[in-house]
Design a protein around this nucleic acid. Structure first.
Length: 700
DNA sequence: GAGCACTGC
């Protein structure tokens, strides 16, 4: 600890902090900034007037750094030094240094917008530009003005974008603290390879034959490529002449690997054996593998992006940024000088790579963030003018406003409504928060809580999809409930209730091939949501899961109705002649029900006329993932509302005031559907759909 | 009848 570079800069740092409200600190890996900055400020008396809060983008980082600092100060974790992450608050009244995830700080600022308990806020790893960090940066800029005399903000960043952050904070000073990385020699390819997989393979074998001992870290974009490369590497290593080079083992490393497989990279290798670690981006920041001396970087990453004009998510392979390329290279220099092989020419790196990664705020749906900011009641409520370090597109902000309007979180002028205020308190996407609000009215809150919690964990519920587990999964899918033909939301509800009836037995999860970790997470989320709902309602609500009685069709009906209101912005109508759907929003999209859905066609081979969907994903085709069957009479008021939508008004612009200014939502009786002002084709199609709907009903 | 980079409240 004595020789951490940052300690030599203590005087300089303190002097700068003393005279400036905001300071940017560029600290490379190994500088000790995460553990030492807070201690320096503590030593210099900054904890006398409040807490020093340090945000981290990841939970594990918040916990492990807090633990380290408490050890260095010789205090018990949770007393002078503590941490706060979701589901776990280990702080006390005595806490002076508090590590927390950026999401937790954001939640805290909802109840205390001035963050008065803090004397210093350090936004650590700000260069990662998580959605939450970006919002915090904007909020800090405002806070500094309001609390100029008694709040200090420190922002740590990577070399390449320190200037930008400084400019954002009125040219605040930048301090650079060197890291403790060893030099890494960079090699470029002459050309871009036609196959990055083959090229990685060849480079890896070259290293194995020519270079001295040291592990090799290879970056791939996803599980499929990792599995292919692992098996090819194993084949080639086996075919090398006996005794021509040292032994080697090949280890895959990615997020959907079960934890016990992930930790294999942390156990030390057998002597005289080289390890090849074939990893996704997880090895870029989240996990640090010791012993790596060689890095192979093909320059690609898989990134999820949101298209605000279609409302659709896609997962694309994109070129990494210079910051990412350097982060990857740095992985070779942690224990001794290393080498990084870039499978692209230096010219491509210089001219084509972006300096920094596109921040998350520019590739996500912003409905939740906009609602959050609206609920903070900032004096200038025009959300389109909020001061972001990197502004999201106006299209994206308008999309968010439109969504919030359709689910009654804001009115037609863009002002937050009381229901929206309550929604902002829930750590959920606005659609699900709205569903909970509505479900509480219909007496099915308990079921809605379960569905919301299940959807929050959905991706972690099922184990990886490697070929060996594939068949088993199909097999057990038969044993899981089927949603009673109301769709995936109802199935998720039924799954959780069965687990509840099994007394949360982990063997039940295993028998049904559900990830224990995922199901436990659902239980935690559900508990948290229940508590928040009780707090909002200021009374005790019935939130117990169904205790084994058979759920009636009426229960499902109420829940589906609540989902219809909550997902008013995610509604689709079936085509007349086939089972394709058309989304009902501003720009209609042609989509299909995802093949993994439990929803089945009826006797005539048709799917239901109206569904709501949890998510639109563009893979081989545009799909709706997780759908729920809705009824026409619930959908009609939403269509009415869609007609009145005026984005100009929502965003506080000077748009025309619509002729139809009533904001009342008409609850139309089933037999008297009058649709006015819709284009003719829409009207006749709705008419046709309605006839079919009534005919089906009559048949029953 | 298709396919899941990584986080987080």
């Amino acid at each position: 600890m004595e020789n951490l570079p940052i300690l030599q800069f203590e005087e300089k740092i303190m002097e700068t902090v003393e005279h400036n409200p905001v300071v940017v600190i560029i600290g490379e890996t190994g500088s000790g900034k995460s553990t030492q900055l807070s201690q320096i400020l503590h030593r210099r008396g900054y904890t006398n007037s409040g807490i020093v809060g340090v945000t981290q983008p990841r939970r594990v980082a918040a916990v492990s750094v807090a633990r380290r600092v408490s050890q260095e100060l010789g205090v018990r974790l949770g007393e002078e030094v503590g941490y706060a992450i979701r589901f776990e608050d280990r702080t006390s009244e005595r806490t002076k240094i508090k590590y927390l995830t950026d999401g937790v700080l954001l939640r805290e600022s909802l109840s205390d917008p001035e963050l008065n308990q803090y004397s210093v806020i350090i936004l650590d790893e700000a260069h990662e530009r998580s959605l939450n960090t970006d919002i915090l940066l904007g909020l800090m800029k405002r806070l500094i003005k309001e609390r100029a005399s008694n709040l200090k903000v420190l922002i740590t960043s990577a070399t390449l974008d320190g200037e930008k952050v400084s400019k954002f904070f009125s040219d605040c000073p930048i301090l650079t603290v060197p890291g403790k990385l060893y030099p890494v020699e960079i090699f470029y390819s002459k050309e871009r390879p036609t196959s990055y997989l083959e090229s990685s393979l060849k480079t890896a074998i070259d290293i194995h034959i020519r270079e001295p001992e040291g592990d090799v870290l290879i970056f791939m974009t996803g599980q499929d490529d990792i599995e292919k490369l692992v098996s090819k590497l194993e084949d080639q290593i086996r075919s090398l002449e006996e005794g021509s080079c040292m032994d080697a083992i090949v280890l895959p490393l990615h997020g959907s690997l079960p934890p016990e497989m992930q930790v294999r990279v942390f156990s030390s290798p057998p002597p005289n054996c080289r390890r090849f670690i074939v990893a996704t981006n997880i090895a870029e920041t989240s996990l640090t593998v010791d012993g790596v001396v060689y890095v192979i970087d093909a320059g690609y990453v898989k990134q999820r992006q949101y298209n605000p004009s279609t409302g659709m998510y896609s997962l694309d392979v994109v070129q990494i940024s210079k910051v990412q390329a350097n982060q990857r290279a740095g992985r070779a220099g942690r224990t001794r000088p290393g080498k990084c092989y870039r499978l692209y020419p230096s010219r491509v790196y210089q001219d084509e790579f972006h300096d920094v990664t596109v921040p998350e705020i520019q590739r996500s749906s912003l409905a939740g963030s906009v609602l959050y900011l609206k609920s903070m009641d900032l004096p200038d409520i025009d959300i389109l003018k909020f001061d972001f370090l990197d502004k999201p597109s106006s299209e994206s902000l308008e999309d968010a406003l439109k969504q919030l309007y359709l689910i009654d979180a804001i009115d037609e002028n863009g002002s937050i409504l009381s229901i929206g205020r309550k929604m902002a308190e829930l750590p959920l996407e606005p659609s699900l928060s709205r569903t909970l609000m509505e479900a509480n009215e219909y007496g099915c809150l308990s079921q809605a809580l379960t569905v919301a919690a299940m959807l929050s964990a959905e991706t972690t519920l099922l184990p990886g999809r490697s070929r060996s587990t594939e068949k088993k999964r199909k097999h057990t899918a038969l044993e899981l409930p089927d949603g009673s033909n109301w769709g995936d939301h109802i199935q998720l509800l039924q799954i959780y209730e069965l687990w509840d009836q099994a007394d949360y037995d982990i063997n039940w999860c295993k028998d049904h091939k559900l990830q224990v970790r995922g199901m436990k997470f659902v239980r935690d989320v559900r508990r948290q949501l229940s508590q928040i709902m009780q707090k909002i309602a200021k009374e005790s609500l019935d939130v117990r899961p169904n205790d084994g009685r058979k759920e009636s069709q009426q229960d499902y009906k109420n829940l589906r109705k609540a989902l219809c209101v909550g997902y008013a912005n995610q509604l689709a109508e079936r085509m007349i002649h086939h089972n394709g759907y058309r989304t009902l929003g501003f720009k209609p999209q042609l989509v299909q029900v995802h093949p993994s859905s439990v929803l089945k066609t009826d006797d005539e081979g048709k799917l239901p006329i109206y569904v709501v969907y949890h998510e639109l994903v563009a893979t081989t085709r545009p799909y709706m993932r997780n759908v729920c069957v809705e009824e026409m009479r619930w959908v009609m008021p939403i269509l009415k509302k869609l007609e009145k939508l005026n984005v100009n008004k929502l965003s506080g612009g000077s748009g025309h005031i619509g002729e139809d200014t009533e904001s009342e939502i008409l609850d139309l009786p089933e037999k008297e559907i009058t649709v006015t002002g819709v284009p003719d084709d829409r009207e006749s199609r709705i008419q046709a759909a309605r006839d079919r709907f009534l005919a089906r009903k009559a048949k029953k």
